[in-house]
Simulated assay, not measured.
Amino acid sequence: MRAVENIIQERKLLEEVENNFICNLRYAFQDDENLFMVIDLMLGGDLRFHLDRMGVFTEDMIRLYTAEISCGLAYLHSKRIVHRDLKPDNILLDEDGHAHLTDFNIAVRFREDKPLTAVAGSMAYMAPEVLSKRGYFASVDWWSLGVIIFELAVGKRPFRAKTNEGLTHAIMHEELSFGPSADSLNKDLMDLTNKFVCRDVRQRLGTKEAGGIAKLRAHPFFAGMDWGVVEAKKYPAPFVPDSKRANFDATHELEELLLEDKPLKAKPRKKKKEPVDNGEPETPQAKEMRIMEERFTIYDFSKINRADPQVKDTPMSETHDLYEGKEHIVHVSDKHSSDAHPAPAK
Rank of each mutant, 00 (worst) to 15 (best):
S333I: 07
H341M: 13
G228F: 00
T319D: 13
S184W: 11
A170G: 05
A343G: 05
E68M: 04
D188I: 05
M225A: 02
S184G: 12
F49E: 04
K133C: 15
I329M: 10
L47R: 04
K262C: 06
A340W: 02
F36Y: 15
L152C: 11
Y65C: 03
I39E: 06
I7P: 02
L254A: 10
N34L: 09
M54W: 12
A307D: 15
S122E: 01
K326P: 00
D103A: 05
V119M: 07
D60E: 15
Y323T: 09
D96A: 15
L116H: 00
V330R: 02
K234V: 03
A74R: 03
T314L: 13
Q30T: 00
A99Y: 02
F178Y: 04
K273W: 06
N34R: 08
T251E: 08
R11N: 12
T251G: 02
A170W: 09
N278V: 12
L131Q: 06
Q285F: 15
A3K: 11
Y65V: 09
D277V: 02
F36T: 01
V130Q: 03
K208V: 08
L47C: 08
E318T: 13
L185H: 04
D94Y: 01
H331P: 03
D85C: 07
P344W: 03
M123T: 15
F296Q: 00
P115K: 02
P263N: 07
R111W: 08
Y299T: 00
R11Q: 10
K326H: 06
K273T: 07
F137C: 03
D339H: 10
M42S: 05
E318V: 12
A286M: 11
